[in-house]
Nucleic acid binder design. Structure first.
Lengths: 271, 271
DNA sequence: TTTACGGTCTACACCAACGGGAGAGTCAAC
DNA sequence: GTTGACTCTCCCGTTGGTGTAGACCGTAAA
């Protein structure tokens, strides 16, 4: 006969846990001293304790263990419990996988944005941009409706996405209404052969551009455009058909309402 | 201003949850009627509620959310929280993966054993056995010491294991002590090229045998051997150097103490 | 015999994130 | 005024234990 402390050391279960299992009628002491209330465990309880810890390590609930131990004595008899439990754990793992995906997405998004910021700074730069495969949806109307376009694009080609969302602006001057633009995502090669309704997949040509990183809400973008346009005029550059806006950091997954930290790269291509 | 019920429908959070978040100072109503105690939420609380649900979906704790919302307003600021949380979830997933592995192992073991039992029945059979790649450790001593051998074998070649554990018995008669046997595992081809100290990897030749399924504890195996030996003598068969015991079902991972359900196949090879 | 010290006892509170239900009060429409 | 839907507070239950307080027990040294 072992005292509860000795039995605890033998089985690896804490004294508290042993008392709890006693209360739950899961692992009864062999004898309880009537006067002192001390619990005493005989050797044959060790095997039961081992079974219980094994089942707990497999994350069975106490009530499952209760049923299993009181009704069966062979693994073949509890296959339905095991299968059910396997389903349960698999379910949880699936959920965790999704959670991890989302968390990774947040991390990657922010880390990329930080890298971009450090690399670029907030000065105007002249850049040589390589050609870029994109999928886009042409839009007409207000700029602020672009969200719908991005949502649709996300549904249709989200899985091929390979870079930050962009906008191609076909207007030569700012328009409140009836603007002419295209929302698009850089996509990977798998998307090239796809023919998706309403979506244009094509390669944007390489070229030279003036680039400026804009920090702040979208309705202040005009100021950055003005800065760039002054330079264009000074240098007498001839602009290409459309400019690009690259949304390096927009509304986050968690925090959406702080446009002060939005980060947008404007690229004005010239010939 | 929305009543708690309306706000609940808008946000997808239950009324109970909203009251709980109020109690936790996480999502305060915009106004609480002094007399009736009714909670009223203004529109700007919707965004906060969305953030909270998003964070809860990502399985952040209430206290994490509290810190996050009260101190920060941009995803870049909470990267350390996200990373830490990612670690935590990954850890849990890793644990779950192990649990699932163990549960699958139990299922597979039992299902294989059941298949074998149904296929074989408990009659003596004549079988043609194909050649079999095994890894084995030669033992001398008592049969009941074979557990140590299997443990060592499991450590050294467990990852190549490809079938039920077996024993090769080199004795022509039963010996209590000083028995001469070899514990072994069938292994896959990856093991063939390995040179592992103390372990012999080789191909057991194909051949004909008398096979009998024995159900019950190992110390009753002799009875089944006797049954087989009578037939050997009747037919005047000449036996090969060693017989095989295949442990189709032995002590389980959970239940170990019911040898009545153990299942062992005895194979006596003859020329 | 007393005292010290460690082991053990019961009983209660606590964790996380709510859900259920009782009993009472409130709001808005008819 | 009444009805029915809504809301309030308060308390309990969940899961698998852990932490703590205050009392009791057992054994050995002084």
């Amino acid at each position: 006969m072992f005292s509860i402390g000795e039995f605890s050391k033998l089985t690896g279960l804490t004294v508290k846990t042993l008392r709890f299992y006693h209360e739950q009628n899961l692992l009864l002491p062999s004898r309880v001293d009537g006067q002192s209330g001390y619990r005493y465990y005989s050797e044959d309880k060790i095997e039961i304790a081992r079974m219980i810890s094994t089942l707990r390590e497999l994350e069975f609930t106490i009530s499952d263990i209760h049923e299993i131990l009181s009704q069966y004595d062979d693994e073949a008899d509890i296959l339905q419990y095991v299968e059910q439990h396997l389903d349960f754990i698999s379910q949880r793992m699936k959920q965790d996988r999704l959670t991890i995906q989302s968390l990774r997405k947040i991390l990657n998004k922010e880390k990329e944005a930080m890298k971009m910021m450090q690399a670029a700074g907030f000065e105007m730069q002249e850049k040589e941009i390589e050609s870029l495969l994109v999928a886009g949806i042409r839009m007409k109307g207000r700029y602020c409706d672009c969200g719908k376009g991005f949502a649709e694009l996300g549904k249709k080609v989200g899985r091929y996405m390979h870079g930050k969302p962009m906008m191609l602006c076909y207007d030569t001057e700012y328009r409140e209404e009836d603007a002419n633009y295209e929302v698009c995502f850089p996509v990977n090669e798998k998307c090239r052969s796809r023919n998706i309704e309403g979506v244009s997949v094509r390669e944007l040509p390489a070229g030279k551009c003036l680039s400026l990183l804009h920090r702040g809400p979208y309705d202040e973008l005009r100021r950055s455009y003005e800065v760039l346009m002054r330079i264009v005029n000074e240098r007498n550059l001839e602009l290409e058909e459309f400019s690009r806006e690259i949304y390096i950091k927009g509304p986050g997954i968690i925090f959406r309402g702080n446009p002060k930290k939005y980060l947008t790269e404007i690229q004005l291509f010239y010939k």
